[in-house]
Amino acid sequence: MAEAIPVFDGHNDFLLRLLSAPARRAETWLQDTGRGHLDLPRMRRGGFAGGLFAVYIASPTPPDAEDFEALMNDPPYDLPLPAPIALRRAQPVALAMAGHLAWMERASDGAFRLCRSAAELRAALAEGVVSGVMHFEGAEAIGADLDALYLYHAMGLRSLGPVWSRPTVFGHGVPFRFPATPDTGPGLTPAGKDLVRLCNELRIMIDLSHMNENGFDDVAALSDAPLVATHSNAHAVTPHARNLTDRQLDVIAERGGMVGLNYATVFLRPDGRQCADMGWEPMLRHLDHLIAHLGEDHVGLGSDFDGALVPRVIGDVTGLPAFQQAMRAHGYDDGLIAKLCHRNWLDVLERIWGG
């Protein structure tokens, strides 16, 4: 088997796992427990060189909630958007998760580094140190006055999605709906437009994943940075509302941005099912389509590890070398695989953040 190529990943939800089991956080981070998709030993074994670590505020589950897992395994489905989450509830959770990310660096004995610049990411890659970047998946922890954004930026926040798949004071998320287009409602609010402008000023990357089509177009009109969707797939292959249409892909291409391939089965499978029984073909088909529209310098990986059901063939982070072997068997050479696995991410982050 060819030597594994390091992977920088556009999205994971490992911090949510740490938050859910604070008493076991050292075990969860530093030991290979076989639970979830990520931990430091498996990252190193699988060639995971770094990624964007999401700060995400989970919606409470009401007692009478429908079984969304079952619904997504039996399309068509249209899951209702969760209710908004108040700032007073979101901020303590976001601070706790940011604290977990800082603790991960301290607890790793030099094996993990929280990075704030592209130069720091490149240095970590050269040294064989796993890197992490703080990302907000939804901006509920930032008030409409935006003052908190300065504080989070000082703490290391370098990437932000204004919405997850629920409304905020900044905009309206795209629902989990199949089959459907991303044209599902209104876009950014006035506060959301101010958020985009300030992110540009602070050089915080704006993540288009989870935004509906109108929100996407609002960001495209306002932002002066490359357009990036950290963990999204091709709507032409899987017609899920969360996936990007060819028109959206063309806009991203025109702006020199990029898209990270999401491993969630509901966004990969042509039938939209949440079912892990699948091979490499759907992942490769999405990659082919993204490369055809964006070019090979503007596509990466955005796994959604620890936040989604992924294909059984990849399993967890230790399946990354097998994914690379599948890319080779599909006809991708090692130069292209290196671009998809880390070079394109480092390049676009340098274009957005500066050196």
Rank of each mutant, 00 (worst) to 15 (best):
D67F: 03
E69P: 15
E69M: 14
A70Q: 12
A70G: 04
M72W: 09
M72L: 14
N73H: 14
D74M: 05
P76M: 09
L81F: 02
L81H: 00
L81R: 05
P82F: 01
P82Q: 00
P82V: 15
A83Y: 02
P84K: 02
L87P: 08
L87K: 09
R89S: 12
R89C: 13
A90V: 05
A90R: 04
Q91F: 08
Q91C: 11
P92H: 01
V93S: 07
V93C: 08
V93H: 07
L95I: 08
M97W: 07
M97P: 01
A98N: 06
G99A: 13
G99Q: 08
A102Y: 04
A102S: 07
W103Y: 10
M104D: 05
M104C: 14
A107K: 13
S108H: 07
D109V: 08
F112R: 14
R113E: 05
L114N: 08
L114G: 06
L114W: 09
C115A: 14
C115E: 01
A118L: 06
A118K: 01
A119W: 02
L121N: 14
E127W: 04
V130T: 14
V130P: 01
V130G: 00
G132T: 15
M134R: 00
M134V: 00
H135F: 00
E137G: 10
E137N: 11
G138S: 09
G138H: 09
E140S: 08
A141F: 10
I142A: 05
G143L: 03
D145Y: 00
L146G: 04
D147L: 11
D147H: 05
D147R: 05
L149V: 09
L151N: 13
Y152Q: 02
A154N: 06
A154E: 12
G156V: 03
L157H: 06
L160I: 13
P162F: 06
P162C: 06
V163I: 14
V163A: 11
V163K: 08
R166H: 15
R166F: 15
R166K: 14
P167F: 05
